[in-house]
Design a protein around this nucleic acid. Structure first.
Lengths: 226, 226
DNA sequence: GTCTATAATCCGATAGAC
DNA sequence: GTCTATCGGATTATAGAC
């Protein structure tokens, strides 16, 4: 549980200076103009060279985008793991939520990119090392949920199931906000995100109906319309 | 509450036969190949004419896409309103959820398009009539929530707030599924969606912590990390 | 209302000189 | 390692004949 540094998670690789400059510009270009505004020509202009020069350092557009995506996941992971400094399961849990919130607000394009279909990025599939980062963050959430169950904060059930419900809620909130479907500004969204999370914790049904629900099957709830 | 027909909701407009053929092909093209695969040339080939011919019926690509989007919302509304045939608030509520589920599974591309940024579709902003359809479905959900509160099924609170929490959860589940982040097939997703919805209803926290939470402010929960 | 032909841009990627 | 020049392709959209 003492993951205070990142070395165990991330593959260390050396980078030529120029390759690093390209990556930095690529991140800027992507974060400012998104996927559509990302072309090798524009990237080259941003760096101050011509387009063919980039091919000395990267195999092509796909390879550059993969590195941007890698950087997105690395940054996201750093945000999350900072929450492990908190002293109790509950505090680690909510600190992780806050860090998630910070990331999605500070880096909306990166967050969007992390949820973009690989083929849309020009890739056949997600590179293995990036998929490993995905799984690591997934595991991170599972651990937060599990220790909150052990601490009597979350109901005892399959952590996977509980985790998916909370993940879906958080992800949905962010999507709706980034899309402008929630009539709130940034600060109001932070409040809304936390309050909605608390509703998820305590449930939206009345206690009475909550009891009644225990006697129902999902199929009974899901009556097809006549 | 007797919205058995669509006439009140949808602007009735006449269409030339050819314009209708174009729209049908445009929907097919979009639903099969997505936004990237949607070009005037391919659309023309699908119809059996050349590209310039389409400009006799539509101002350009943007206008065609707007009509496809319009069709998406119209279809989505039809799905939802079918749930009004159910006899009780709870049954209308869950029937609406099932219809939502049917739509997102049967028309994933349309659902994605409805949640695509307008500028990505080549539009400055959403056309007014389409925005009206958006608001109508939003109102539909609010009505379902409100009548479930009156019936003692959902906790009494601001229906807007409760509605956002459930909307975010549902939308997030769908996004994760469509992106392949949930390791389930279609039938398993239906089950997962319903079960996760029930967890949202009854809450993921223990009853004890749920009580304790009532004495907390959101700010207390949202302690910044040290 | 549809056609051919074409304008005007963009793109990724490569060859070969330096 | 970077350049110029260029290939080969895509796209939206328009002009003008029929």
């Amino acid at each position: 549980m003492q993951l205070t540094s990142d070395e165990r998670l991330f593959t260390v690789f050396t980078m030529t200076d120029q390759r690093e400059r390209i990556l930095n510009c690529a991140c800027d270009l992507y974060l400012e103009h998104g996927l559509d505004g990302f072309s090798m020509r524009k990237l080259a202009k941003e760096i101050g060279v011509t387009a063919p020069a980039i091919y000395r350092h990267y195999d092509g557009r796909e390879a550059v985008l993969a590195d941007v995506l890698r950087e997105a996941y690395r940054t996201f992971s750093r945000y999350l793991y900072a929450a492990l400094g908190a002293p109790s399961p509950l505090e680690r849990f909510s600190a992780a939520g806050e860090q998630y919130l910070n990331f999605v607000i500070e880096h909306p394009r990166w967050y969007g990119m992390m949820h973009t279909a690989p083929e849309h990025l020009g890739m056949d599939e997600i590179p293995a090392d990036i998929e490993a980062l995905q799984m690591a963050t997934h595991q991170f959430w599972l651990d937060r949920v599990r220790e909150c169950m052990e601490a009597g904060i979350l109901r005892e059930m399959d952590p996977e199931e509980s985790s998916i419900t909370m993940w879906a809620h958080a992800h949905g909130m962010v999507q709706l906000f980034h899309q402008g479907l929630l009539p709130v500004n940034e600060e109001e969204f932070r409040r809304l995100f936390r309050e909605s999370g608390m509703r998820l914790m305590s449930g939206v049904a009345t206690p009475e109906f909550g009891e009644e629900m225990k006697t129902m099957t999902t199929e009974a709830i899901a009556q097809p319309i006549a």
